[in-house]
Simulated scan of single mutants.
Amino acid sequence: MAVNNLRKQSDQEEVINLAKVLIKGWKKLLPQPGGGTPAAKAKEKASNGDSGNSSDQGRGNGDSSKTISRQSSSASSHSFSSTNLDGIRERCKQMISNALKVSIPEIEGEEDLQDPEELAGIIEDCIYTEFCNTDNRYKNRVRSRVSNLQDSKNPELRRMVLNGSIAPEKIASMAAEEMASQAMKQMRKNFTKEAINEHQLAQTEGTRSNLLKCGKCQKKNCTYNQMQTRSADEPMTTFVFCNDCGHRWKFC
C-alpha cells in the first residue's frame, strides 16, 4: 500500500517503474484464491486430485492471506508514522541551523567555528532524547532555542554556541533567563531590585509603636510618621497608621 501510494504520487518515470516491478514481485509471493502461490498451486494439482482437501487448504490459505494483509497494513501504518516523525525532526533541525547561520559581523573572520548543521543536529537530538517524542513540549523547547539564537539583540549567545563556549548539550536545556542578552539580564535585575526596595519600603516606612491606640479596632499595633506641615515654630504633625485594620489618622 505504501509503495503503491508512492507510485501514484511520484512524477519520476524510474520510480514509477521500480514500484510496479516491486508490487508485481510481491503479488507473486502472495497466496492465490483457492491455493498457495502459482507454482505451489500447480504442483499441488499434479500431486493431489482430491477437491475436498484442496478446498480446505484454500480456506486455510485464505486465512493466511488475511493475516498477511493485516500485517502489511500495520507495517504500512508504522512506516507512515516513522516518516512523519522524521519529517518533524528534520524541520526542527533546519530551523535551529538557520538560526545559527544568522550573520554576526564580529565573528565573520574568526576561525575554529563549528558547523551550524552539525550543531543543530546535536541540539535537536538532545531535546528529542529528553522528551522521547515530538509533542508540544518538544516543539516549544525548539522554538525557544530558535527565537533566542536568531535574536538580533543577542548575537553573543549565537557566537558562544558557534565557537564552543556553550556546548550544544547545554544550550538544549538552558532556561530562557539564561539565554537572554546581557542588556535583558540587567533590565530584569533592575526590575527585581526595584520590586524588593518597594516591598521593603512598604514594610519599614514609619516608626512602629504600641503607645498609640487605634480608634477603630482599639489595637495598639500602629506605625507613625512626623512631618512639618505648618510653620517652623509650630510642632510637627503626626500621621498614624494601624497595621491591623489599615485605619489612618493624624494628630498634632
Rank of each mutant, 00 (worst) to 15 (best):
M1D: 00
A2K: 08
A2N: 10
N4I: 14
N4R: 13
N5V: 07
L6G: 06
L6I: 15
R7I: 15
E14N: 08
V15T: 10
V15M: 02
N17R: 14
K20G: 07
G25N: 13
W26F: 15
K28W: 12
Q32A: 04
G35W: 03
G35M: 02
G36P: 01
K41R: 07
A42S: 06
K45G: 02
K45Q: 09
A46E: 08
A46M: 04
S51E: 11
S54W: 07
D56L: 14
D63M: 06
I68H: 05
Q71N: 11
S73T: 01
S73G: 03
S74L: 08
S76Y: 00
S76H: 00
S77P: 00
S81R: 12
T83R: 10
L85Q: 10
R89L: 15
C92S: 12
Q94V: 13
I96C: 02
N98D: 14
L100Q: 04
L100N: 05
I104D: 13
P105G: 08
E106Y: 01
I107K: 00
Q114Y: 04
E117F: 02
A120E: 01
G121Q: 01
D125A: 07
C126R: 10
R141C: 06
R143F: 07
S144D: 09
S147Y: 01
S152D: 15
N154I: 09
P155L: 04
L157I: 12
R158A: 13
M160E: 14
V161I: 15
V161C: 11
G164M: 03
I166W: 09
E169G: 06
I171S: 00
A175C: 01
S181F: 04
S181A: 05
M184L: 13
M184D: 14
K185N: 02
Q186P: 04
R188K: 11
K189M: 12
N190T: 15
N190R: 14
N190K: 15
A195K: 12
A195W: 09
E198D: 15
H199W: 07
Q203K: 11
Q203G: 09
R208C: 06
N210K: 11
L211N: 13
K216L: 11
K220M: 09
C222M: 09
Y224L: 02
M227Y: 03
S231T: 15
A232T: 14
F239I: 15
C242W: 04
C242V: 12
N243G: 10
C245S: 05
H247M: 09
C252S: 09
C252D: 05
C252Y: 13
